[in-house]
Amino acid sequence: MLAKRIIPCLDVRDGRVVKGTRFINLKDAGDPVERAEFYNREGADEIVFLDITASFEKRRAIVEVVEKTADAVFIPLTVGGGIDTVEFMQELLQSGADKVSLNTAILKNPGLIQAGAERFGNQCIVVAIDARRVNQSAPADNLQWEVYSHGGRYPTGRDAIEWAIEAERLGAGEILLTSMDADGTLDGYDTALLAAITGAVGIPVIASGGAGTLEHLYQALTVGKAHAVLAASILHYGTYSIKDIKNYLAAKGLPVRPINN
């Protein structure tokens, strides 16, 4: 049976990890390679790097990070952030990334999903969607979510469910779905958003944004029917370990990959 995946997400700027306080046992908690190795040892099922480097000139740094991580960590590696050409996708994949996560660029140019999928295969293409509720007080049976671009800064006018369906049609292999309402709150994932998207597409959906407790992760995987959960704060700030998460989910009957597989 397919295991539910637990995926740590590391924000990387100029080749350095920007979040996390618990890593007293690491020589350099800001080193993305060392942090990826740490989570790999802890039993992470994949690693996601989100490159938030602002300047175009410093974008080379992430390629080097990917190259070094792939020398040390033998689990799937996804890279997102500022990817806007097939050439850059190829560079990241050749450096050792297994998947690229596309977001802002494909909102302007959805054809980039298709171009990437045709060149590298659907399994390489993750479409990241940042969605926000249109009307916070809408009744539960009439919810709508709008897609935002540029890391959640600008509304695009696109409906999140329609965009997810379109992304699948164009060749996305997975959807990485972030609720901007829930992100950073630690109050739980937007399970209504997750359920709406997982019900609308046939490709796996990774839940992101809002995890504060182990029960939140369980809810995303059951009520939201997500296939994987992305976790940042609860891991980086040491609230829970990957072992805690997997033990909790396994005790509640969900399939997870044991840490000493």
């Binding site: 049976m1 397919l2 295991a3 997975e174 046939g202 490709i203 796996p204 296939h227 990959r257």
Partner: peptide
């Protein structure tokens, strides 16, 4: 059809 495709993850 029925299960998510592609089959992605640890099995």
């Amino acid at each position: 059809a029925g299960l998510p495709i592609p089959h992605v993850g640890w099995n």
